[in-house]
Design a binder for these strands. Structure first.
Length: 730
RNA sequence: GCACCUUUAGCUCAGUUGGUUAGAGCGUACGAUUCACAUUCGUAAGGUCGCAGGUUCGAAUCCUGCAAGGUGCACCA
């Protein structure tokens, strides 16, 4: 019998167990693939020729605690890594944390606001130092949270996105791209957030449908329609479709005198096919400085424009007496003035979309600024090809369509950000605000007058990189491209597992930059998970009070229970409803496993019945037990196939059902009859089957429920670590 | 506007590349047990697989159309 003080006489206590087990794993050194022992069940004779399996962890933003979404990615990647490790691979899961540029600065600005301070009271250096301290504090929390979730990642290789070697790689890429003509500095229209005082990429914007007024105004012989009369000061081009019969008397380039806001001006007629003849009157004036579409038209016809709205969202000198007014106020006043001048024809309401900042939801002001851009088309083509030819497989496969669609219509990427928290752009720019000259300068060796305008001094670019420009290089940067042995051994990596919301932001950019810099794909498989929602499919949010904190839940129900709840029934690309009841259910499962062990140990290790499980391998199984064993073998084959094909939701559920509904409910119940009966042969046969099968169950469940399985394994007196046991079938 | 996803039991979801009477968890009803189980075990009820066509010997699964919900992308002032 088990002794009275055996741990199996009490229910499983995850809180007491998990930390101890994690420390044991970490101390073993086996998170580092270089330390893994050679395996006799593999063809390989030593670790250097063992097959590798590599996942680079998507680095969590070091600006808060881990949430349920993080718990999902940790679980999935840990399942993959642990499975491959058990299979005998040199499994590397390389962890990291992200300074998360704009994201973190926004979080920090909110913190400042709460304290009654503002980012703009601080110098860039002061702000940088404060955010760095905040980030490093959070980084430590993030690492602790990853450990508590059981992440079997190689801490000896951990990277931070601001590590000096990462920055060097990013700089080298920037320089190379500049030399290859893929990076250029130009005055282009960008999305400007007046709150955050930075430009944003197209991805960092939201479109919001609003109902606004559309104003019809007399503009010389034309009536034009606009929703933004306050921007119309400098408008001197009037545009219409070349095929519009209503205006066929006007020719491209015609000059007309027009009575306008600022008095008598000369308007120039422009014919462009971008004009929708159905909309409004089919005539509009253009504002190249503050409208994307207008900018495109202006570019086509080489038209000039003026800045009407400044960085703070206020009107400039061009607006004369309206100078300094905020947009909303200015709009009303300008409309009043138009009425006085009898230029306002009519007002209508209409529905249209406005582009807003994805962080603060304020309307973004398009404006023209000199910025660094990446030419995307040459990068996109090979990235499309890599997926089309199967070098990279995306799971779920429908995401491939979304990927192609985006890359085939891609526009150049603005990588300049006017924020302090980030990697500085290593370049000199012309101090003359009217000039857009810039030159990459990694070693701070360029100075003097601007060679383009020969007016401005060359000064250090105060801007930082869009954080996705650096994280897009994460796979090869973390493996120390180009010369390090890690890069040679582990690149291309096997799986990139991340949220499907990152397919454009991150995945596609890693593919493009990886192919560009290394000539190879950064990973062979992309596994995209959905969002974690609450039990009623609602988004988790602090204000709704439905947030499930993985660390708290882990303490309450056990991390293994949380991990099972995150995996079972969770298909890639589909959002997961995570109810507390579900987690509770897997806590019961953990308890079940615990008690199964208790039963097996007490019945195979007691006087008068078979003991010493290690001696049982020579026992011949009865016909009945052989059948049970064969059936379990089938389950194992099936589950292994699921794991090989990324069907973790099926593998975990099948094991759950086998363990509970067959092994426990049927086989253990039946075993009671055998053990309390007289057939000694049947007893030792069953004892062998139970001990062997339990051990295999522990191995196969280990990727999903690492803590309890290891804890049980340690109690079996095997003297080994479950984490590196060989998988029970070939 | 375009694209993509979803639609299966009261709720949340599976259904492994078309194949016997469609499954799970939770919930519900009834019963049993406390002899591995801070419990567990058994039994049961409950589904026109969104709707309408089509392909097929055979469709939840493939095709077409429609509807509802969701997401993404792009835009016309």
């Amino acid at each position: 019998m088990l002794s009275e003080d055996s741990k199996f006489m009490k229910p499983y206590n995850p809180l007491e167990t998990e930390k101890r087990i994690y420390e044991m794993w970490e101390k073993s050194g086996y998170f580092n693939p270089g330390n893994l022992p050679s395996r006799s069940d593999l063809a390989a004779r030593d670790t250097t020729s063992m097959p590798t399996f590599t996942i680079i962890m998507p680095p969590p933003n070091a600006n808060g605690r881990l949430h349920a979404g993080h718990a999902l990615f940790v679980t999935l990647e840990d399942v993959m890594t642990r499975y491959k490790r058990l299979r005998g691979y040199k499994a590397l899961w390389l962890p990291g944390t992200d300074h998360a540029g704009f994201e973190t600065q926004v979080v920090y600005e909110k913190k400042l606001e709460k304290e009654g301070r503002s980012r703009f009271e601080l110098t860039r250096e002061e702000l940088y130092a404060e955010v760095m301290k905040f980030t490093l504090d959070n980084k430590a929390n993030t690492e602790a949270d990853l450990r508590s979730l059981g992440a079997s990642c190689d801490w000896s290789r951990e990277k931070f996105t601001l590590d000096a070697d990462i920055i060097k790689t990013v700089y080298d890429t920037f320089k190379q791209m500049s030399e290859d003509g893929l990076v250029y500095r130009g005055k282009r229209i960008v999305n400007w957030c007046t709150k955050h005082q930075t430009s944003l990429s197209d991805l960092e914007t939201n479109a919001e449908t609003r109902t606004d007024k559309l104003y019809y105004m007399q503009y010389g012989p034309f009536v034009i329609a606009t929703s933004r009369p306050e921007t119309k000061f400098g408008d001197k081009y009037v545009v219409m479709h070349p095929d519009d019969a209503r205006y066929s008397q006007y020719k491209d380039g015609d000059k007309l005198p027009v009575k306008w806001l600022e008095g008598e001006i000369t308007a120039t007629v422009v014919k462009d096919e971008a004009i929708d003849m159905e909309f409004g009157t089919g005539v509009m004036t253009i504002t190249p400085w503050h409208d994307m579409a207008d900018f495109e038209i202006a570019k086509r016809h080489n038209l000039s424009g003026v800045e009407v709205i400044d960085k703070n969202g206020k009107l400039t000198d061009v607006a004369g007496e309206f100078k300094g007014l905020k947009i909303e106020v200015a709009r009303e006043k300008v409309v009043e003035r138009l009425k006085e001048l009898e230029l306002l024809v009519k007002e209508e309401t209409y529905e249209h979309n406005v582009i807003t900042c994805y962080k603060c939801n304020r309307i973004l002001e398009p404006r023209i600024m000199p910025q660094w851009f990446v030419k995307m088309e040459p990068l996109a083509k090979p990235a499309i090809e890599a997926v089309k030819n199967g070098e990279i497989k995306i799971i779920p496969d429908f995401q491939e369509k979304i990927y192609f669609h985006w890359l085939e219509n891609i526009r150049d990427w603005n990588i300049s950000r006017q924020i302090a928290w980030g990697i500085p752009i290593p370049a000199k720019i012309c101090a003359n605000p009217g000039c857009d000259y810039g030159v990459v300068d990694l070693d701070n060796s360029v100075s003097g007058k601007c060679p383009k305008c020969s007016e401005g001094e060359l000064v250090i670019d105060p801007d930082t990189f869009d954080t996705w420009f650096s994280s897009g290089q994460w796979p090869y940067a973390t493996l120390h491209y180009p010369d390090h042995s890690d890069f040679k051994e582990f690149y291309p990596t096997d799986v990139m597992e991340t949220g499907q919301d990152l397919i454009f932001f991150w995945v596609s950019r890693m593919i493009m930059l990886g192919l560009y810099r290394t000539g190879k794909v950064p990973f062979k498989n992309v596994y995209l998970h959905g969002m974690v929602r609450d039990g009623g499919r609602q988004k988790m949010s602090k204000s709704k009070g439905n947030v499930i904190s993985p660390v708290d839940i882990g303490e309450q129900y056990g991390t293994d229970a949380l991990r099972m709840a995150l995996v079972v029934g969770n298909t890639p690309g589909t959002d997961l409803a995570l109810a507390e009841e579900k987690i509770k259910g897997y806590k019961l499962f953990a308890n079940k496993l615990w008690n199964i062990t208790r039963f097996v140990l007490s019945n195979t290790d007691t006087e008068g019945r078979p003991r010493a499980p290690r001696g049982l391998t020579s026992v011949t199984l009865t016909e009945a037990d052989q059948k049970l064993s064969d059936h379990f073998e089938e389950i194992l084959q099936d589950v292994t196939k699921d794991l090989d094909n990324y069907r973790f939701h099926l593998a975990s559920e099948k094991m759950y059902h086998y363990v509970w509904d067959e092994f426990a409910s049927v086989i253990l119940e039946d075993s009671k009859n055998i053990f309390f009966g007289q057939d000694e042969e049947a007893k030792i046969s069953r004892a062998r089957f139970l001990t062997e099968t339990l051990e295999k169950i522990l191995i196969v469940l280990h990727p999903f429920m690492p803590f309890i399985t290891e804890e049980i394994w340690q109690s079996l007196g095997k003297g080994s670590l479950l984490m590196i046991e060989p998988w029970p079938i070939k």
